[in-house]
Nucleic acid binder design. Sequence first.
DNA 1: TTGACATGCAACCATCTGGTTGCCTATCAT
DNA 2: ATGATAGGCAACCAGATGGTTGCATGTCAA
Lengths: 104, 104
Amino acid sequence: MDEVFKALADPSRRSLLDRLHARNGQTLSELCDGLAMTRQAVTKHLAILEEANLVSTLRHGREKLHYLNPVPIHQIGERWIRKFERAKLVALSELKRRLEADET
Amino acid sequence: MDEVFKALADPSRRSLLDRLHARNGQTLSELCDGLAMTRQAVTKHLAILEEANLVSTLRHGREKLHYLNPVPIHQIGERWIRKFERAKLVALSELKRRLEADET
DNA sequence: TTGACATGCAACCATCTGGTTGCCTATCAT
DNA sequence: ATGATAGGCAACCAGATGGTTGCATGTCAA
């Protein structure tokens, strides 16, 4: 879980996930296209995404195809974000109340 | 949005949010209790959370009260995670299909 | 088989990050 | 007033992070 959060913390990595979401199963070179980064930098990012289980790869000859695995993202939604949903409703009005009350 | 992701990337900070979720409106000292960290380290974390708008503070005499703001967390769920929900359904079976088809 | 293409590996580098220590300021209670 | 309590500020440090360059390897096509 921590690995997933860490992996999602970088904008380049989130953008890679976006690209895979737009078109799944891209090669490394394809994912590099149009990015202001070396291939090796992208490789590193993909390694981190793979480590976090957000991306699965598949060798196909000399190409390496990358597939998005949305399960960990979903789990963050379920196990983590969901927990704060109830708080969302309460906290705002509560904060407002306190702000007004404590304004000495 | 990036700031929120960055803020959530650190386990200590997520734990601070958890603590505020358990009991809202804690002082700095209270939040330090039981943590294997100096007060200054916690201060820094809270500053990052505040910067990301995940925590709002309120001075009350010499105390500083910290309140959880769950809105950005909610937004990540809505604007980011939701986008990958549909993919979750498709991708797994798709990946499985490709894995079997490309197994030369 | 040989050149071109797709990827891998390793060393190196600057900067960011998470943490520390030391000291200062503000406020409360006696 | 004065000590104790709550917090703030700044300098410093080691290690993580995001990126680079250079070279090696594997595979396809002519």
